[in-house]
Design a protein around this nucleic acid. Structure first.
Lengths: 133, 133
DNA sequence: TCACTGTTATACTACAAATATAACAAATAC
DNA sequence: GTATTTGTTATATTTGTAGTATAACAGTGA
């Protein structure tokens, strides 16, 4: 799986890493049980520090997306992915809400807004089963 | 309009301010041409520094949601709100995308995800014409 | 034993958020 | 004109996070 970092972005590097790994799982490019590079090798590949990678891995582990074992390294959660529980839905609400508010100010109606959300959803979902390139 | 700040949140204070003012415009609690408190008085009311308020106002001014005049202070854009141009739609996409990816990982299908987005949209839009309390 | 894994610890730089003062410039009220 | 209030600008300080740089520790498997 190819990871693209934007070092000029205002989004922290470890957050970009977290997002892209989650996207990889969502698209199926990363399959349950699949091995991830060690923090050292991925850091070297990306030209960043191992602690930055470790921060991303640790975050994903706490969220339940990764399992981490010594020597074996990190692997995508093989058994059950985290569920869309109430906590996640709350977070989803609180993050979508400001976007919806600004969309309304800018004159988008419900249909236009939902179409944009749908496009974002499908841009990921439709890649399922895609090549690992 | 009542503004609620969470000083424990990881969201910067000035961002919370920006979001709530945009929400106020979206719901109609803040009407075009309406006067906003001066940076000093609002800062005093909220118990924060005037520069924090000023940062929020300046941001909203650059986005086109506010007009700022000396002595008259800040007021909600009276003529034309910013539009949902390509730039905004791009930003909307790039912010919804990571949320959609995580939702997919957590087993939400398109319908469930869109329903959540719809709920966020309606939670704001349905307040239109609400009291200024 | 050796090499590789994640983990922890420490130190440092850089930057953003927030505060605290202070002063400046324009517009209004008197 | 004078005073007041407005946003604006400028410094400085504190605090916390991001990221890097080393280094060492602790399991695990060959």
């Amino acid at each position: 799986m190819i990871i693209q970092l934007d070092l000029e972005s205002d989004i922290p590097i470890y957050t970009q890493l977290v997002n892209q790994i989650i996207e990889g799982i969502a698209t199926g490019q990363l399959e349950p049980g699949e091995q991830l590079p060690s923090v050292r090798s991925l850091a070297a590949d990306l030209g960043i520090n191992l602690h930055t990678v470790n921060k991303a891995y640790t975050h994903l582990k706490q969220e339940g997306f990764l399992q981490i074992h010594r020597q074996r390294g990190a692997l995508i959660q093989p058994h059950r992915m985290p569920q869309a529980d109430a906590s996640f839905k709350d977070r989803l609400q609180s993050e979508v809400r400001p976007l919806a508010a600004e969309a309304i100010c800018r004159g988008m109606d419900e249909e236009a807004f939902l179409e944009a959300c749908r496009a974002a959803f499908l841009s990921i979902h439709y890649n399922k089963g895609g090549t690992t390139s």
